[in-house]
Nucleic acid binder design. Structure first.
Lengths: 347, 347
DNA sequence: TTGTATGCGTTATCAT
DNA sequence: ATGATAACGCATACAA
């Protein structure tokens, strides 16, 4: 706590300092510290002298120098599309858990669905500060990723089916099938026959996919959808609120049930509809997607489709570490996890 | 996209390769790339040759080598106590925004209120992978931090008043004063005179502080608090739910109004109380702390005390960068931001 | 079992 | 204006 202490934080001891103090060579220090459980044998005496010197100097290895030498950083990075979306929290936590077991650090970054931030992230990647990356790309294209992949020597794993790059592994929840099943369930089990759809713009990956599953079920069931009942949002609560207002503007009479592309928007929709006097689910039923924690906070609780996000996170991390450990792995590996309908009060 | 491309990602071009191609020396390449807007002058001709070579080879500087040389990593780290608590999202985003302006990366980590994770984080710090750190320590003591600070050459800035280290800057929301004001407000403006308190264990920093502000107001107003109406939680929604059940078990009749130490617990309390048949705020009023987004999702909407978390985040980052830029700064600097009562429906 | 020598890719200090 | 040269701290092939 003294002033001296804080002022002399200028110079950290190096292996050379330790070696000098222990009366050995610098590489011997390195061996004691690294190979302790592996190949090379060190005499117990020198080992002890080295360890004593380490303790006395308070030596800590410089991970940057080590990285320069080994070409490994011990870090992976994780790019999520929206750090405020709880859906990603579980994923982040799962990734961190897997990483921790391997003494890896996780660099979490946040694109806010913004293309330039995704690009920036990919650039960081290409500068090789991490050994690998997990991405949730919204705008990034195969070509973007190909460019960066050929620069970086780090593997990339992606959440989301839309990336088709021949050398990037993909983990995804099968949302198209889930939407198909959910639509059938809403009709057959819940008895709704008239639907609206709160989606996102066509160019955002989950949009067309979830729509296809939904549409396919409706077609099979011989049901149509009124174009006035289709609106767009942006994955956020305010986006859902705006979508609900747009629905009301377009037609005073609302569809009997609303499919909303994700939970955050679904919550915005519910809150706005309620404020406008509609009862959920008696006037309008609502079903979301993701099963985030907030879906149990709204009243009525939100019926939704769950992705097993913990499993997604674990898979993402494991797949990435496989590639880090074995750079020879090639090809586009695909890992699918199923989704599941969570019936609650809103539909 | 070809197999060759992916196989020959073994070797990245270095400055030496660029130099060879441009017909100059390697340091010249370095100068072209770094000093372009600063001191040393380079002839336009060589500059162009170098830049051409850089483009042709797709050269990217190796930031690890640079870090080894410059002793800077261009990264700061941020340790939050709970990544699922929205309160920290705003802070994280603000920190990232400030960092981005300075071309810094942010390494976000998550302690989940667990002591060993906080220690692990501090150890990473002491290995000098980052140029500085922002911490929200829950268990970490002054002594812990002193130990790591004397090992690391990186400055630390902390959110939370309880760290008293003579060389660590502190940024905090004045929650003690806010609780005092809020208690007076609940009595004088809202007319409640009988209170319960959902806190956290004594050793968790915000606990005693917020309690003191609350208690001081009550004492001044000549109001007491029934010990049965005091329970503990752990900052989470399930913690709040459990606290509410404990309250109900302890006494069928509940206090007229509940102060809850943070919003997540307050939401858990509201949901559980409602399920048990109590009306909020008619039977029991509830006031939280933090003003997280979810506080507008619950019904009734949550009356709470807002910390200006964006401002907190910006201040934290700015203070840290000041220290990074000027290592001579010493002493414990204190930055306080005010809190504000947000009246909504729950109290 | 231990020491010597070398290089990882950069930046910085000398020269010229 | 540019080039040689050294140094950052560590890991490893090789020699002893």
């Amino acid at each position: 706590m003294t002033a001296e202490k804080t002022l002399k934080r200028l110079k950290q001891p190096t292996m050379y300092d330790v070696a000098k103090l222990a009366g050995v060579s610098q590489p011997t220090v390195s061996r004691v510290l690294n190979h302790n459980k592996t190949a090379v044998q060190i005499s117990a005496a020198t080992r002890q002298r080295v360890l004593d010197a380490v303790a006395e100097l308070g030596y800590h290895p410089n991970v940057i120098a080590r990285s320069l030498r080994t070409q490994r950083t011990g870090m992976i990075s994780l790019l999520v599309a929206d750090i405020t979306n709880s859906f990603y929290h579980v994923i982040a936590r799962a990734v961190q858990d897997v990483a921790r077991q391997r003494d890896y650090e996780v660099l979490i970054s946040n694109s806010d669905h913004i293309y330039s931030r995704e690009m920036h992230f990919a650039e960081v990647l290409s500068k090789r500060v991490v050994d690998g990356a997990i991405l949730v790309p919204i705008h990034l294209t195969d070509q973007d990723l190909d460019g960066f992949l050929s620069l970086a020597n780090a593997p990339i794993v992606v959440l989301g089916q839309h990336i088709q790059h021949p050398n990037i592994d993909v983990v995804y929840g099968d949302d198209e099938a889930a939407m198909y099943e959910a639509a059938r369930w809403m009709v057959n089990e819940r008895g709704y026959r008239e639907f609206g759809f709160v989606g996102v713009p066509e160019d955002l990956p989950p949009g067309p996919r979830r729509w296809r599953g939904f549409k396919r079920a409706l077609d099979e069931l011989g049901l149509g959808i009124d174009p006035r009942f289709m609106v767009m949002g942006d994955f956020t609560i305010p986006g859902g609120e705006e979508a609900a207002r747009a629905l009301i503007r377009a037609s005073k009479r609302l569809p009997r049930a609303l499919f909303v592309l994700n939970d955050l928007m679904a919550i915005g929709v519910i809150l706005t509809l309620q404020d406008a006097g509609y009862r959920i689910p008696d006037d309008v039923a609502v079903i979301g997607f993701d099963n985030i924690p907030e879906s149990t906070i709204v009243r009525p609780t939100l019926t939704t489709i769950a992705q097993d996000s913990h499993d997604l996170g674990v898979r993402l991390a494991e797949v990435l570490f496989e590639r880090i450990d074995n750079p020879n792995i090639t090809g586009r590996r695909l890992f699918r996890t199923a989704c599941q309908i969570i019936p609650r009060q809103s539909a």
